[in-house]
Amino acid sequence: MNQHEAHGSEHPSFLAHHFATPRQQFEAGKLGMWLFLSTEILLFSGLFCAYAVYRANHPEIFVYAHHFLDSTLGAINTVVLICSSFTMAWAVRSAQLGQKKRLCVLLAFTILCGFGFMGIKFIEYRHKWHAGLLPGKHYNPQAHEGDHAPVSGHADEAEHQPTTTAARHPVESAAVEPEHQAATTPASTPASSTASEEHTLQVPPTIGPAGLAAPVTTTADVHAEESTDEKVKNVQIFFSIYFAMTGLHGLHVLAGMSVIGWVLWRSMRGEFGPLYYTPVDLAGLYWHLVDLIWIYLFPLLYLIH
């Protein structure tokens, strides 16, 4: 430190006063980010713990309920996130090499992937909203007919709006339904729109050979749904965990997109180069962690055997 202070004028503008060298500042930032990532891992560990406990003790709930998830969409989202991670890592490389234009393009593409991910998530949530596949008390597989779609695609909002507050307007939703189906679920046919399904819940088959997920058709009785769900009780627990996990993860995706947006803005101003690219690197670490968590969420929630 002593040496450096002798040449105070050489203190670059990006170097905070209490650091002696850019290297020290960079490594401090990196260590700080890794520590923060460890707290994120522990934050998610609570949900993984809840998942593990209920799955170990009641595997039948998970086997039954996961058929309601569309694993094609899950797989697409996995690919989207992996691509975004790749472009993010590439962006860090571009920053290191001082390729400003490429850096901006790659960051923008990464944010775009984030939007794609959230868009698909929105479609999935909306489908569950319509089908009444909601957490806890709101789990009501018959309620698919005519509930309002959530106003926004934000993970938490979809999760947080109790069904009771949504007014029923069959006419409006009828107009919405086919559109979202056609646009979003090419490979599967979620049971959500036809009137004949008023009391019949058809489990959407997952992708691939029919042998895997033979469509289970259950006749759900309004008064005693549990007895007809093939004796599978407490299915709502699965959806509580599903929404909690993907919801929290979705929030992290949004946070990551905002951070990358901020980094993108600074990149466009030309703040980063071979000497200083710490924010790009740290935002990248965060984004990769979000990807990492999804890598586990995908098989745990969508691919249950």
Binding site: W34, S85, F86, A89, H288
Partner: peptide, 24 residues
């Protein structure tokens, strides 16, 4: 793969990897 290559752990200070492993 993500941690070692995308997150640069391979070229990083080992302590950062310890943090990841420790928290796990």
């Amino acid at each position: 793969l993500v941690a070692v290559y995308f997150m640069h752990l391979r070229w990083d200070r080992p302590f950062n990897a310890y943090i990841l492993v420790g928290s796990l």
